[in-house]
C-alpha cells in the first residue's frame, strides 16, 4: 500500500489506496488520522457516492470531509460503488436490487479484516443518503448514519411554507423573472440537476410507513443519526418537516436534524460546505468521542 500525507491537514493524516470486493474490483481511499490524535475505539466512517460523481464528491466535498474527520481523530473510507468512479461493475447474479448494499458490506468486511474495527458510520448525500439508509437498516455493524438531503416526503406544512411561503418572497419572483428572461426553466420548476437527483437515483416505490419503521428500528438498535437538509433540496422546507414526515422529534442526542436555509443541494458555496463538514465532524466527536 502506498500512503500519502496531505499538506492541507493540521495533523498528519495518512491516505491509503484500498481494493476490495469481487476480484478486488471495488476501490476507495482510506484516510486515517495520525496515531497521536486518533480517537480510541472509534468507528470508521464510509462516504458513499453522491449520484454519479466519483469518490471525491461534489465540489470535492468528500475529500474535505474525510480530511477534517482525520484531523478530529477519525478514519474514513471514501469509496466508489460498483460501476461508478474507478470501481468495476459487479458481474453475475446479484442477490439484491440495490448493489450498494453489497458494495458497502464488502467495504466493511475489508476494513474489519484489515483494521479489526467492527463498527461503522455511514455518510451519504442525495442518492448516497438513500443508499446509506438501505444499508444502515440491514447491517448491525453500522452504529451511526449521516443522511444529507436524503429521503423526504412532502407534507402539508411543506406546501404552506414552501409553495405559499416563497410566493410571498420578492426574491422568488425576481429570480423567476430572471430565469425566464435567460431562457431557463419556468418559475417553480426544478433545474435539470435537481430533477436528476431525485428521479434517477432514488427508488420510486418508497413508502413513508416503511421508512418510519426503518427509522424506528434504527432508533431501537441505538444507531446515532444526523439528518442534514438544504433549501436547495426541493422537497423539504424547514427543520419542522422532519417531525411532520416521520412523527419523530429530533433532539441533541441520538436523532439530530439540521436545516440549512441558504445552502444549495450540493454545497456549491464553500461557506456552506465548511458548515456541513464542521457539523458532521462535531457530531462524530459528540457521538463517538473518546
Amino acid at each position: 500500500m502506498i500512503q500519502i500525507n496531505p499538506q492541507s491537514n493540521n495533523n498528519s493524516s495518512i491516505e491509503t489506496v484500498c481494493h476490495f470486493g469481487p476480484q478486488g474490483g471495488l476501490f476507495g481511499i482510506l484516510t486515517t488520522p495520525d496515531d497521536a490524535c486518533a480517537v480510541k475505539d472509534a468507528p470508521i466512517a464510509l462516504i458513499l457516492n453522491a449520484g454519479i460523481v466519483h469518490r471525491v464528491g461534489p465540489f470535492r466535498l468528500h475529500v474535505d470531509l474525510a480530511r477534517q474527520l482525520a484531523d478530529a481523530g477519525y478514519s474514513t473510507l471514501r469509496l466508489d460503488l460498483s460501476g461508478l468512479g474507478d470501481s468495476a461493475q459487479r458481474t453475475g447474479k446479484i442477490e439484491t436490487p440495490n448493489r450498494a448494499e453489497l458494495d458497502v458490506r464488502d467495504a466493511m468486511d475489508y476494513l474489519q479484516n484489515e483494521t479489526g474495527v467492527d463498527r461503522f458510520v455511514i455518510i451519504g448525500l442525495c442518492s448516497g443518503a438513500y443508499n446509506a439508509h438501505q444499508v444502515s437498516v440491514k447491517d448491525d455493524r453500522i452504529v451511526g448514519s449521516v443522511f444529507m438531503d436524503g429521503i423526504v416526503f412532502r407534507t402539508l406544512g411543506f406546501f404552506v411554507r414552501h409553495k405559499i411561503g416563497r410566493l410571498l418572497r420578492p426574491r422568488f419572483w425576481r429570480n423567476a423573472i430572471k430565469r425566464r428572461l435567460m431562457g431557463e426553466n419556468a418559475p417553480g420548476s426544478e433545474t435539470a440537476g435537481e430533477s436528476l437527483a431525485e428521479g434517477e437515483f432514488f427508488g420510486e416505490d418508497l413508502d413513508k410507513d416503511d421508512v418510519v419503521r426503518d427509522l424506528e428500528s434504527l432508533m431501537k438498535r441505538g444507531v446515532r443519526m444526523l439528518f442534514l437538509y438544504t433549501d436547495g433540496y426541493d422537497d423539504i422546507c424547514g427543520r419542522s418537516q422532519f417531525k411532520e414526515m416521520y412523527g419523530l422529534l429530533p433532539d441533541e442526542g441520538q436523532l439530530q436534524v439540521e436545516y440549512y436555509p441558504k445552502s444549495e443541494h450540493t454545497f456549491r458555496i464553500i461557506e456552506n460546505r465548511q458548515a456541513a463538514c464542521g457539523r458532521v465532524t462535531s457530531w462524530m466527536t459528540g457521538q463517538f468521542g473518546s
Binding site: R171, N175, R179, G232, P261, K262, R268, I270, E271, R273
Partner: peptide
Amino acid sequence: LWVCKMTTPNDDQVEEILG
C-alpha cells in the same frame, strides 16, 4: 439567482469561483 442575497470571498488573498 441564489435563494437569498449571497456573497463569496473576493479580496487580495483569495477569490471563490464556482465552488
